[in-house]
Design a protein around this nucleic acid. Structure first.
Lengths: 251, 251
DNA sequence: CGGCAAATTGAGCATTGTCAATGTCTGTGG
DNA sequence: CCACAGACATTGACAATGCTCAATTTGCCG
């Protein structure tokens, strides 16, 4: 098992925390035929309307899901991090209902639709583990509806920053409450239903208040409790007990 | 198979349109032990923070999912209709991350967590069909993020009314572009991230424009194309080909 | 008929958007 | 090492969509 790409380990760790997998499950999971590919930032993984023929696991880098309205406004509906099995819907639904795009340069392991379907037909415990992944995604979408629907601009940004902090922590990408957030202010705006201009003002205000510190693409949260309160953030919806149990009590 | 409650038939019809089920699948699905219960409007099915021990199938009536922010604002994140297997996450996640509440008086078939888990462990095709149900729910959550994040008030309401029209049609609850919408304006507001006062104004404006007609709790859409355009509605995200294929070409 | 929730309407206001200019950073090529 | 281009970030002035508050009206049910 040594030499396994850390992205695979993240996924395995998650799956193990759900149904206890046996040796056959693990063998089947790691034995799935895949192709590793590096995607440049901004390249598309799936486009709305396409009939996808594969799903993918993010090994490194970030990706995001978004839709564009008829009027041309973009809304980012979710962000994915290493260890996430993205676009499982690609193997189960017939048509993609949104776009998936690399946020940064990404390493991804692509698995064919048929391989995913064979896996879930033969290994119910793996199927359940993957299903749970998609259920947690759904829970995050719900929270985003709340974020965009019922919080003011300051709350939305604070909440988003809290969510990233906790999720990236699971992927070992946070140190001392500091992490890299490779999103432009325009992308933050599209994630929160705001304009880039207003995002800029809110970030500035949060910095002045001492709730965040920014340098380059990095964010540090000097006072977690204050930011948490500003965003009305409660991590229940991340279901961390089913992602990485040992971290779920941390905050 | 006759005498089956129409709610079960709706569910079966959906599931059959995904993986073709064999006799054993059908027998297993209909053989799952359940308890039918009638819930009064506004009664809770699950509360955020609870550890649910069952899932349920809506046989008649509507139910909705919602969350409440720390400041006390409520956001409705989804609505369910007859034939929907609701709260499947209750059988797979450990803690409920949101509330599920009856919108009207509801007949529901409750299935225990263990029964659901046994079913999906033994019948992969059923598991896939149920999983797809939750994936379509997730797709709808994404569209709600877009609705609330990137459409103005008029667009949000128009979009919501279009979504209900198409989904209720699948459950045979629409006639001549007319359906019952048993939501108060406050609930519509909580579904769209608006205030009840503004929902009232927008509804009035839509009626004056001739895009909708209201009487009591009923809505009629005299000009589908116009309302569709007002909401920027495209039904792709409902994945109707996996719900009731014969209707997916209708519009 | 009375009581109450829901719907409606008006007036004033604030959060956030729009427009537009300017500053800053990063990477590239000479 | 420096100059330049382009994307991104920042700031100011003003506008507008949607919110708040508050008063009425309407509809439903016992």
């Amino acid at each position: 098992m040594t030499g396994l790409h850390p992205g695979f380990e993240l996924m395995l760790r998650k799956f193990e925390s759900r149904s206890s997998l046996d040796a056959a499950d693990r063998r089947a999971l790691l034995g799935v035929p895949f192709k590793i590919q590096t995607l440049e930032a901004a390249s598309y993984v799936v486009r709305e309307g396409e009939r996808p023929d594969r799903s993918c696991l993010i090994l490194s880098g970030l990706a995001f899901r978004h839709k564009v309205t008829v009027e041309g406004a973009r809304q980012i509906v979710g962000v994915h991090i290493p260890g996430d099995f993205v676009d499982l819907e690609g193997s189960l639904l017939n048509v993609a209902d949104h776009n998936v795009q690399a946020l940064t340069r990404c390493e991804m392991a692509f698995v064919s639709r048929s391989a995913v379907r064979e896996l879930i037909a033969a290994y119910p415990r793996l199927a359940a583990a993957m299903w749970i992944d998609t259920l947690i995604d759904a829970s995050i979408f719900r929270e985003w509806v709340v974020n965009v629907g019922r919080r003011d601009a300051r709350g939305r940004i604070a909440h988003l920053l809290c969510e990233f902090a906790r999720r990236l922590e699971v992927a070992d990408l946070v140190e001392e409450y500091r992490y890299e957030l490779p999103m432009t202010q325009e992308q933050l705006a599209d994630s929160t239903g705001l304009t880039p201009v207003h995002v800029n003002r809110v970030l500035k205000a949060l910095a002045i208040e001492g709730l965040i510190e920014r340098e380059r693409r990095f964010v540090r949260i000097p006072d977690w409790e204050a930011l948490r309160r500003a965003g009305g953030f409660s991590e229940l919806y991340l279901h961390l007990d089913q992602v990485r149990p040992e971290l779920s009590q941390a905050r």
